[in-house]
Structures are given as C-alpha cells and as structure tokens.
C-alpha cells in the first residue's frame, strides 16, 4: 500500500484480515447448524448490500427494487439448471450478465429521477418483476415456485455440505468486498461521493454523471444477481414472495443500519439485521408465545430508532473511537504531508 493511499483512505488491510480471520475461525466455534445457515445467508445478502451501499451510500441514489435483481439471478439459475439442464456455473454467469444489461437499460432513463421519484420507480420495477414471475408460470412455476434446483459443486466437491458452502459464499463475498473497496478507494469513489453532494458541480468538472450512476446501478444489480444465484442453489427452491418489495426494503435497511457511508457498514448491517431478526423471533416465541409476523413491530421500531438517533449507521459509531485513537498518529501524518507538499511545489 502506497503512502499516498494511506493518507487518502486509511488502512484497509487490518479490517480485511480481521474479517478473514473471523470467517476462518467461526466454523470452529459455531456448532449449531441453524446458526451456520444464518451465517451463509449473511454472506449471500452481504453481496447484495455491498453493491447497494455503493449505489446508496456513495452515489446517493436510492433503490427500492434490488430484490428484483436478486430474483433475476435466482430465477435465471433456477430455470436454466432445471428446465434446460445447464451447468449451474454457466447459469450463474448468464444471470449476472443478463441482469447487468437489464439494469443498465433500465438505469439510463430511471436514474434521471431523484429522491422519492427514484424510490417509486424502482419500487414499481420490483412489483412488475414480482407479477411477471407469478404470471410466467410455465417457466417459473408461478406461485408454487421452482423446486429441485441442483446444488453447486466445485472441482467435484459437492457444496451440499454446509461448511463447504459457507466457505464458498464467503470467498465470493470477500471478492465482492475487495472489488467494492477498490472502487471506493480510487478516483471513482470520490466521483460517486461528489455526485452525492452536488451533481451540478460534478458535471462542471467534466464528469459524465449519468454514466457513473448507471454503471454503479448495473454493477450493484449484477452483484445482487450473483447473490440470487447462490441463494437458489443453496436453498434449492425459489418462490415469488422471496423477491417482493419487502426484501428490497430489508436490503435497504441493512445498508442504512450498518452505515451507508462505508462498505464495511454493509456487512455489519447485514449481520446485525439478520441476527436481530432471529433474536426477535426467538424471544417472541419463547417468552411471549407469539408467532407469525409479529416480530415486525419490534423490527419497525428498531429501524425507526436507529434512523432517528444514528442516521449514519452503526459503522459510524464503531469507527469514531478508532478515529480518536488515530488522532495521536495525526502528528505523524502531518509531517508526512509536509514532506509531500514541499515536493509538490
């Protein structure tokens, strides 16, 4: 890592290694297969929320429709592997490429809209997609869903084993994280944040703002599609309700709760919300004897409270003390700064 990079963006190696260590360690600690499933789902959803974080937190464009892209991936994989006996890997790639282009084409007109209107348009796309998968029942199985999606296998190793699948999912998630970090820690990251702050000024500096917005929208859609394919092969069954607006909203909430301003926030938010869901369900069942969707009350309440009191998300809360620690080091950076500034003249 060059000195300049450190000055501009801080260190990324430490948190990355920490995450890798955590992922490697968890299988030794966690014995419950139930928690393992949750960890796998966190990996899958993190891939979606990472892309969404680039779109929302960096470029400042909202989407209430990413469950549709998640669904395109899942259904492409599902349909191609069951009805057409295609290799799951090929199906996964086809899904991603298709989603990318669909999102790109939709993105060109839609990203001209702002704020509430963009939210409404993406929401509309999600509803249209949902109705389409219900309606095209010859292909998608309609409301009954699509069953018998094969599991993935890698080098002859069937990924039916939870441990294998866990590592597979998290390897993919780490790769997506790495790509996202690369984007964020470059001029593109600055461009996206500039768009967030002032589109007009960004354009004046020579940036074709629309191109960037559409590219990030399509990229985040492709990530969602990848996650969707993995989901389909893991659960081996897909049905329309999984891809309704409620899921889009869930993704959005994960990003915001974690802190949209940082890609690490996406993973944190996904983890927190997933466990929160489970805890609410567990407590509700065991201590209050309530069932069904009752947990949404608590869930709604927590979201309101977090957004009211921690609008920058949990990541912001965590990184603040770390930042304070770094204040001490600032003297060092300053001398370093002087060094380069002198060289600049």
């Amino acid at each position: 890592m060059s000195k300049l990079e450190k000055v501009l963006y801080g260190n990324r190696l430490k948190p990355f290694l920490f995450l890798v260590g955590l992922i490697l360690m968890l299988p030794f600690v966690v014995k419950s297969s139930y928690i393992f499933t949750i960890l796998i789902l966190i990996g899958i959803y993190s891939i979606v929320t990472l892309g969404l974080c680039l779109l929302i937190g960096y470029a400042g464009q909202i989407s209430l429709g990413h469950a549709a892209f998640f669904g395109i991936g899942a259904y492409t994989s599902g349909v191609l592997t069951t009805s057409f006996q295609l290799s799951p890997w090929l199906a996964l790639v086809i899904g991603m490429v298709t989603t990318f282009f669909i999102a790109y084409l939709i993105g060109i007109p839609i990203l001209k809209l702002k704020g509430h209107f963009l939210a409404l348009a993406t929401l509309g796309i999600n509803i249209i997609f949902y109705i389409l998968i219900l309606g095209l029942n010859q292909l998608t199985g309609g409301a009954a869903g699509l069953i018998g999606i094969p599991s993935l296998s890698l080098f002859g190793l069937p990924l039916t084993d939870k441990l294998f699948f866990y590592f597979f999912v998290w390897t993919a998630a780490l790769l997506v994280l790495l790509l996202s970090l690369n984007i964020v820690r470059s001029h593109v990251g600055r461009v996206l944040r500039s768009i967030h702050d002032s589109e007009i000024a960004t354009e004046t500096l020579g940036v074709k703002v629309e191109n960037y917005k559409v590219a990030i929208f399509a990229l985040s859609a492709a990530f969602a599609s990848l996650a969707g394919s993995m989901y389909a092969h893991y659960i081996t069954f897909v049905a329309p309700p999984t891809f309704y607006i409620t899921k889009s909203i869930l993704f959005l909430i994960m990003v915001m709760v974690g802190g949209a301003g940082s890609v690490w926030g996406a993973i944190l938010g996904t983890t927190v919300i997933m466990f929160l869901n489970e805890i609410i369900r567990f407590v509700g069942h065991t201590y209050f004897g309530i069932s069904g969707e009752v947990e949404i009350v608590v869930y709604g309440l927590i979201i309101i409270l977090i957004m009211m009191f921690l609008p920058k998300g949990l990541m912001h809360v965590i990184s603040k003390p770390i930042q304070k620690l770094k204040q001490k080091k600032k003297v060092k950076i300053k001398s370093h700064k002087d060094m380069i500034s002198q060289k600049g003249v």
């Binding site: 690369n182 984007i183 990251g189 461009v191 590219a215």
Partner: peptide, 13 residues
C-alpha cells in the same frame, strides 16, 4: 478529473 483515465472497470481491478 479531466486529466485522469480511471473508470469503474480499471478501478475495480
């Protein structure tokens, strides 16, 4: 910006 050739693809990789 106008002096740079960074785009989403080369940045990602």
């Amino acid at each position: 910006h106008v002096k740079l050739k960074t785009n989403v693809v080369n940045a990602a990789f």
